[in-house]
Simulated assay, not measured.
Amino acid sequence: MTTPTTGSLRVNGATLHYEARGQGPLLLLIPGGTGGAASFDGVVDGLAAEYTVATYDPRGMSRSALDDPDAEQRVAEHADDAFRLLHLLSPDKPARVFGASSGAIVALHLLTTRPQHLERVVAHEPPVVEVLPDAAEHRELIARVQATFRTQGLMPAMAVFAAGLKKDGDTAEPKAEIELPPQAAARARQTMADLPYFIGRIVPGFMSYVPDIRRLEALSDRLVLACGQDSRGELPYRPAAFLAERLGTELQHFRGGHTGLTTHPAEFGELLRTSLRA
């Protein structure tokens, strides 16, 4: 791993930890879930050969502390955080942005509200379930997850959430876990501490977000919607596929599933480089 330059940025209600490495036009990587900046460890060096790559821990995650730990989390505020990083690191030139999962929702909002600062956006499986015809079912899922979290705790809530993300009719037993490299395994253990925040704050705030489809249509030449090739039929896959069809754009398929960034970093990083150039 290339040693990054690290810094902190004061934003409304939080202090963000960010890292930058490489040279060239700015590429901002927005993590999803509880991964933080470290979720991009497998791809940053390859990308830094072509870009100045900036990664960060979203507000409330890992090293990016909230002023109020109980504050409600909104997509618009997270997108403003990303914009402030763009402005700090590339004040005069538009940047490229990649977002994964909840980070892809942030990237979509950033595109629709700050398009003049963006050259290209790649959004991998943004779970914007409100665009789907069966959105009401997914609202019920989110409500069940929150109720379970309040009454039974974190792991039962995570089980309800995971079951809701499966393919329709998938009742198979969970597959054996993929053995991760030591660095990735250590990162996974560290991010467990962020799960209560994720399930209690990010999931309800982000999965109720409604993207501005008309604005996305107008900006579709700058947007790449992407999914994991192993995710077909799963809930995070469906909104991206729906939006790609609605916008009349090609849906890119990356190696692996929803977490292909971690399980197939080399192939994922190479296709991301291609998608950012096109």
Score class of each variant (00 low, 15 high):
Val75Ile: 12
Arg238His: 05
Ile105Leu: 01
Thr148Met: 07
Pro239Gln: 04
Leu108Ala: 05
Tyr237Cys: 01
Val44Pro: 09
Leu180His: 03
Val53Ser: 06
Thr5Lys: 06
Pro211Met: 09
Gly33Met: 05
Val122Tyr: 02
Pro4His: 03
His17Phe: 03
Arg238Trp: 03
Leu272Thr: 10
Gly42Cys: 12
Ala135Glu: 05
Ala14His: 04
Thr274Lys: 08
Leu66Ile: 07
Thr55Arg: 03
Ile178Gly: 06
Ala163Ser: 06
Thr6Phe: 09
Glu72His: 13
Leu66Trp: 09
Leu66Gln: 04
Tyr18Met: 01
Phe161Met: 01
Tyr56Cys: 00
Ala123His: 05
Gly42Trp: 15
Ala278Asp: 15
Ala49Cys: 12
Ala159Cys: 05
Phe149Ala: 06
Gln229His: 14
Pro25Arg: 00
Gln183Trp: 14
Pro91Lys: 11
Gly33Tyr: 01
Ala143Arg: 15
Pro94Leu: 09
Glu217Tyr: 12
Gly248Leu: 09
Asn12Ala: 10
Val122Pro: 15
Gly269Lys: 12
Thr112His: 12
Leu165Thr: 00
Lys167Trp: 08
Val131Gly: 09
Gly233Pro: 07
Val11Tyr: 04
Arg187Ile: 13
Ala159Asp: 09
Pro174Ile: 04
Thr151Lys: 14
Ala218Lys: 14
Glu173Asp: 05
Val129Cys: 07
Ala241Cys: 13
Glu270Ile: 10
Ala159Val: 07
Glu173His: 07
Ala65Ile: 10
Gln73Trp: 10
Asp230Arg: 10
Glu72Leu: 11
Gln183Asp: 15
Ile178Cys: 02
Leu27Tyr: 04
Met207His: 06
Arg277Lys: 12
Met155Phe: 05
Ala172His: 14
Glu177Cys: 04
Ala244Phe: 14
His258Gln: 10
Leu108Asp: 02
Asp45Phe: 14
Asp212Phe: 06
Leu251Ser: 07
Tyr237Thr: 08
Leu26Lys: 02
Gly228His: 03
Ser102Leu: 08
Ile30Pro: 00
Asp230Glu: 07
Leu272Asn: 13
Arg96Gly: 03
Ser90Glu: 00
